[in-house]
Computed example of a mutant assay.
Amino acid sequence: MDFVKGQLVRSKAGRDKNRTLAVLAMDGPMLWLADGALRKVGDPKRKKARHVAPTTTVLANELLKSDQSLRDAIAAYEADCAN
């Protein structure tokens, strides 16, 4: 699976299991992920691509610029999935 910048993914492993994160960058088999809360945009988590489940949702680049906008976008996505 190819990931794109801004794509939302669900963590399948680690202490952040079941959290929704956004892909900030790709580096071979590694992804740089942030959620704006535990993992800030300025200090993203490095995680192997096989440890995340991709979603079809891709956020716009302007939503990836600040922690608050990223948190709001992920909260809106999770609220939409809950319905």
Rank of each mutant, 00 (worst) to 15 (best):
R46V: 05
A22G: 11
V4H: 06
L63S: 10
D27A: 00
D2E: 15
W32A: 07
V41W: 02
R10A: 11
L63N: 08
V4D: 04
A34E: 13
A79V: 05
R50T: 05
R10Y: 15
D80Q: 08
L70P: 11
A82T: 01
E78K: 15
A53P: 05
N18A: 15
G14K: 00
G36I: 11
R39N: 06
L24Q: 14
A73K: 00
L70V: 09
A49Y: 02
K47F: 08
K40F: 11
G28N: 07
D16V: 12
K5Q: 14
M30V: 03
V52S: 03
S66M: 03
E78W: 10
L38F: 06
T57D: 06
A37I: 06
P29S: 06
M26L: 11
F3D: 09
R15M: 14
K45F: 04
A76N: 13
I74W: 01
L8A: 07
K45D: 02
L38W: 07
G36F: 12
R19M: 08
M26F: 04
L70Y: 12
G28I: 06
T20S: 11
L59G: 06
T57Q: 14
G28E: 11
S11M: 14
L33F: 04
K40Q: 14
R50H: 06
K47Y: 08
K45M: 04
K17P: 04
R71I: 05
L31H: 07
A49W: 04
L31S: 06
L24I: 08
Q68Y: 02
D16Y: 15
A49I: 02
A82W: 01
P29T: 03
L59R: 10
H51M: 00
H51G: 00
H51F: 01
A73N: 00
A73R: 00
S69R: 15
T56W: 02
A25W: 14
T55D: 13
M26C: 13
M1F: 07
S69L: 13
L70M: 12
K5P: 06
V9C: 10
R10D: 08
N18M: 13
L31N: 10
S66V: 01
N61R: 12
A37R: 06
A22M: 10
T55I: 12
K17A: 06
A34D: 13
N18G: 09
D72G: 09
Q7P: 00
A60F: 02
L31E: 07
K48H: 14
R15Q: 14
S66A: 04
T20Y: 14
P29M: 03
A34R: 13
R39F: 05
A49C: 05
L64K: 08
D72M: 12
P44I: 05
A37G: 04
A73V: 01
S11T: 13
A79D: 12
K65D: 03
L63R: 09
F3K: 12
K12C: 08
V23S: 05
K5N: 09
D16T: 13
W32P: 00
K12F: 06
H51K: 00
D72Q: 15
S69M: 10
M26R: 10
H51Q: 02
A53W: 11
A73Y: 00
D35G: 04
A60T: 07
M1Q: 09
D35T: 00
T56C: 03
K5E: 14
L8S: 09
V41A: 01
D2R: 15
P29N: 04
S11V: 15
R15Y: 15
D80A: 10
